[in-house]
Design a protein around this nucleic acid. Structure first.
Length: 224
DNA sequence: ATCCCGAGGG
DNA sequence: CCCTCTGGAT
């Protein structure tokens, strides 16, 4: 996709939502880290419900470790993959205390060394907490990058690199959130709402589902 | 490639 | 019922 087109896409998304923000509810970098770890293959709504209870009880590495495995699981049982997530979070809390004084490190390698933290989660932290123009490629961004033609790629790594090259510098900070929100509410996975999409004319996705049923070629439905 | 895995939508 | 949700580890 050419530069003018991708610029126009983000300019329009910016007009609608000038200051996009994650919909995960958090108060501290540590809370955001835990929330993002919990958000893997889960809706933010589901995560927010659980973290509201969890963070009221424990919102530091020490406090979460004190809950123990069963105690932590009791708070996050309503989230998918909760078994694995609970173990990863406990090990991550221990490592944060051992290596980083209980703080969330501003370093990709250090972040990805935490159990349950991969490239996508590290990119979210680096972007949202530390303001770095990273591109976290999740399920939404992977889908949109390919559908729109912004940055086609077979792997998240390829899409990430493509977006870093394609997104104008002025939009890099917020591009992640714009694509997420557009993917969540308009360019949905199963039934994209192309008729109400504000960048449909710039998109390469072929399926522009018509809003109205195809006209019948008979008059059988007409009342007499 | 496969496993993990609850809740909500269609 | 089936699909999807801000993935990561093996």
């Amino acid at each position: 996709m050419n530069a003018e087109k991708s610029h126009e896409i983000f300019a329009r998304l910016c007009t609608v939502n000038p200051n996009p923000r994650t919909e995960l509810v958090y108060r501290t970098p540590f809370e955001l880290l835990i929330a993002v770890m919990l958000s893997a293959q889960a809706t933010d709504k589901s995560v927010n419900q659980a973290t509201a209870r969890l963070f009221a009880r424990a919102n530091t590495p020490e406090a979460i470790l004190a809950l123990g495995e069963d105690g932590l699981k009791a708070h996050i049982r309503t989230i998918g993959l909760f078994n694995t997530k609970a173990r990863n979070i406990l090990r991550t809390c221990a490592l944060l205390i051992e290596r980083h004084g209980g703080a969330v490190p501003r370093d990709r390698a250090a972040l990805e060394a935490l159990p349950g933290v991969g490239r996508k989660t590290a990119n979210v932290i680096l972007n949202t907490v530390f303001g770095e123009p990273t591109m976290a490629v999740d399920t939404h961004i992977f889908r949109l990058a390919n559908r729109t033609g912004l940055a086609p790629g077979k792997t998240p790594a390829a899409v990430e690199q493509g977006l870093l090259n394609q997104v104008p510098r002025e939009f890099q900070r917020n591009a992640h959130h714009w694509l997420i929100l557009h993917g969540r509410y308009v360019c949905t996975a199963r039934k994209p709402r192309c008729p109400e999409c504000l960048i449909a004319d710039l998109c390469e996705y072929p399926d522009k589902t018509p809003p109205h049923p195809a006209p019948s070629n008979t008059l059988d439905h007409v009342q007499h």
